[in-house]
Computed example of a mutant assay.
Amino acid sequence: MRGESLFSGYLDDPAATAAAFTTDGWFRTRDRARRDEQGDWWFVERDGDMLKVGGENIGAPEVERVLREVEGVREVAVVGRPDPMLGEVPVAFVLRQPGAAVDVPAAHARCAQALADYKRPREIRVVDELPRSTLDKVAKGALRRRLAEEQRDRQAEQEVADA
């Protein structure tokens, strides 16, 4: 996109600004969209919500839609956890409906019914809250960082145990 009301760059981050703007001033939103038969545009997902599992692209919203069908689920965020063999694997963070329980084995079974094996979350975590951005969107970057930190901690523990 481009226009007079669009911001001119990221504060004190010339590298991010250069990566986000083309040389002729177009801003790359990293949004994926589709156009319907009437010519209207529909937001589909953020490019950052695309997981790459063993060379296959997975749209996180596809996995999230399946998990929202599970009883007791209020909201879902799927992100990639680093994996040494596959690059990353899906992990789902599930927020339950107030007063409800989420049957994690049933959630895995629903994923097995509806998704190809490489798209299925390797882990489903029921959480009390999801991190939020200033616009109340789920801060998936915070979830990715949490998973990466946990992985680093596990590796460090393993190195100590092996020593």
Rank of each mutant, 00 (worst) to 15 (best):
G3K: 10
G3C: 10
E4T: 09
S5P: 03
L6F: 13
F7W: 06
G9P: 11
D12N: 14
D13A: 15
A18F: 09
A19P: 07
A19C: 05
F21L: 08
T23H: 14
D24R: 07
G25V: 07
W26R: 12
F27Q: 03
T29A: 12
R30A: 15
D31W: 12
G39M: 07
G39Y: 07
D40A: 14
W41C: 09
G48Q: 13
L51F: 03
L51N: 03
G54D: 06
E56P: 00
I58N: 01
I58E: 02
G59D: 00
A60C: 07
R65A: 15
R65M: 13
L67K: 02
E69H: 11
E71N: 08
E71Y: 02
E71Q: 13
V76I: 05
V76G: 01
R81W: 03
P82I: 04
D83I: 03
G87R: 07
P98C: 11
P98R: 07
P98E: 11
A100T: 03
D103R: 04
A106P: 02
A107F: 02
A107L: 03
A107D: 00
A107V: 00
H108L: 13
A116Y: 00
R122E: 08
I124K: 02
R125F: 08
V126C: 06
E129S: 15
R132T: 08
S133M: 13
K137D: 06
K137S: 10
K140H: 02
A142D: 10
A142R: 13
A142W: 06
R146T: 14
Q151S: 13
D153Y: 08
R154F: 12
A156Y: 05
A156G: 00
Q158I: 01
E159F: 12
V160M: 02
V160I: 11
